[in-house]
């Protein structure tokens, strides 16, 4: 088993009860051979960052459908930076308007995926970024 297993944390920050999308992505990543740590709903940014560190993931994926992404996503990005984990690939998805996407990418997100993105695209993006 001497290989770099890709580990991904999928989390839903804040008060958002809809995790169908997050679960679909989690399953697609598993089917692509990744280990996916799913944290469940209503996590605080602090909990998400703590889990990412303990689980030593290369990728954190956040999902939000509630509209609170600007605040919550940015908080996760800044906490990761604060703890010295900028090397973690940070991606997001959900209902996120175009203009916010740009803002989040400026705040440290590597990529925000828009609704309708195929899971294949997410898989190949992660593989390319992590394995180079």
């Amino acid at each position: 088993m001497a290989e770099n297993q890709i580990r991904v944390l999928i989390a839903k920050p804040g008060l958002d009860g809809h995790d169908r999308g997050a679960k679909v992505v989690a399953q697609a990543l598993r089917d692509a051979g990744m280990e996916v740590i799913y944290t469940g709903l209503r996590r605080t940014p602090e909990q998400i960052v703590s889990a990412a560190i303990q689980e030593d993931v290369q990728v954190v994926g956040l999902s939000s459908l509630s509209g609170a992404h600007n605040h919550l996503f940015q908080k996760v990005a800044s906490l990761l930076k604060e703890k010295g984990h900028e090397e973690i690939l940070l991606i997001g998805g959900g209902i996120i308007p175009e203009k916010d996407r740009k803002q989040l990418e400026d705040a440290g997100f590597d990529r925000i995926f828009s609704p309708g993105t195929s899971t294949e695209k997410i898989v190949s993006y992660i593989k390319e970024k992590v394995n180079g």
């Binding site: 692509a32 996916v36 799913y38 469940g40 889990a51």
Partner: peptide, 16 residues
């Protein structure tokens, strides 16, 4: 070769 590791879902009170 992949896995879904979902035990943290029920360990809400412990994270962080």
């Amino acid at each position: 070769g992949g896995a879904i590791l979902g035990d943290r879902v029920r360990m809400m009170d412990l994270a962080g």
